[in-house]
Amino acid sequence: MSPETVLPLVVFALASSVTPGGATTMATASGAHFGFRRSIPLMAGIAAGLASMAAAAAAGLAGVLEAMPSLQLVLKTVGSAYLLWLAWKVGRSGQPRLDADLVRPTSFTAGVWLLWLNPKAWAMTLGASASFATLASGPARLSILLALAFGFAATASVSIWCTAGTLMARLIRTEAQWRWVNMGLGILLALSILPVWL
């Protein structure tokens, strides 16, 4: 397998993971509230979650979901409810209080679940599994290839968004400004669900 044949997959993974959505919004909010270093567990969880989803989709989960539309509906409903709950939490958070005893950044495990319950991420990885199936000689190799591509893309994407959040935190000074930013991030997170339902 040459780099030329894998390049479209890498471009797809990067383009689809860098666009605004639940994970990028959470990375931005975490960077703004906790800084880059304290957001690393969340970002690692997001990358691991997307990589494992891509591997699962390539290994055959795509076929199971295609065969059971009711399971797709359950996944979309539960995932949307979880993202709305996160949007509510982000939107209602106030000015960062960086005392480590008072607040904790989102954990690695929560980052993984953020992806596994994210309808946009499912659409992305299932679509990639179907579109790039010919790149590998079987489901196991395709699983590894998609896991590597999406893991790399997610790491790059959330690092960029977290850095943007960290830089944004340096510009925002008042409680009122933080309320507006958090409300905006919460609304963006809630809106990231719409493409899945439309």
Rank of each mutant, 00 (worst) to 15 (best):
A13L: 04
F132T: 01
E4R: 04
S80Y: 03
W180T: 14
T109A: 13
S52Y: 08
P41Y: 10
S16E: 10
G21E: 04
P96A: 14
V64P: 11
F108I: 02
S16Q: 13
G60M: 10
M183S: 02
A29L: 07
L188T: 13
F152I: 15
L86I: 09
T77L: 03
T24I: 14
G165N: 02
V64E: 11
A81T: 05
W161R: 01
G91Q: 09
T166A: 14
V6D: 04
E4I: 07
P41K: 06
A176I: 14
A133G: 09
S16T: 15
A44F: 11
V112I: 08
A176K: 08
Q72S: 08
L198G: 14
V103N: 14
F12I: 02
F12C: 10
P20R: 06
R37S: 10
W178Q: 04
A140S: 11
A128M: 01
A81K: 07
Q95C: 11
T5V: 15
A27S: 13
L191A: 14
Q177R: 05
C162T: 05
M183R: 07
L7G: 09
A128C: 06
R141G: 15
L42H: 01
L61Y: 13
S129E: 00
L146R: 08
S143H: 03
L189Y: 05
N118L: 10
G35V: 02
A47D: 01
A123Q: 10
G186V: 11
A110V: 05
T106R: 06
M68G: 00
T109I: 11
T24P: 01
H33L: 01
V10N: 03
L71D: 07
F152P: 02
G91V: 05
M183Y: 08
R173L: 07
P8E: 05
L73S: 11
L9V: 10
P41M: 12
L9D: 02
L188H: 00
I46F: 00
S107N: 05
R141S: 15
R104N: 10
T125M: 09
Y82T: 06
A100Q: 10
S107I: 11
S93N: 07
G21N: 07
S131V: 01
P8V: 10
I193L: 15
A58C: 10
A169C: 07
L191Y: 01
G151C: 05
Y82P: 00
F152Q: 12
S143W: 01
G151V: 13
A176W: 03
G22H: 09
M26P: 08
G138L: 08
L126G: 02
Q177D: 13
G151R: 06
S159A: 07
W122E: 00
M1R: 11
W122I: 06
A23Y: 02
T155E: 01
L98G: 12
L189V: 00
T5Y: 13
A29P: 01
S143Y: 04
A51W: 03
I172S: 13
G94K: 04
W178D: 07
F36C: 12
M124H: 09
A15M: 10
V11R: 10
L191N: 09
L7S: 05
L194A: 13
A121T: 09
A149V: 03
V10M: 15
S70P: 02
G60V: 06
A110Y: 00
F150M: 06
R173Y: 02
W161Q: 06
G63I: 11
I172A: 13
L7D: 04
G184Q: 06
A67H: 05
G165C: 01
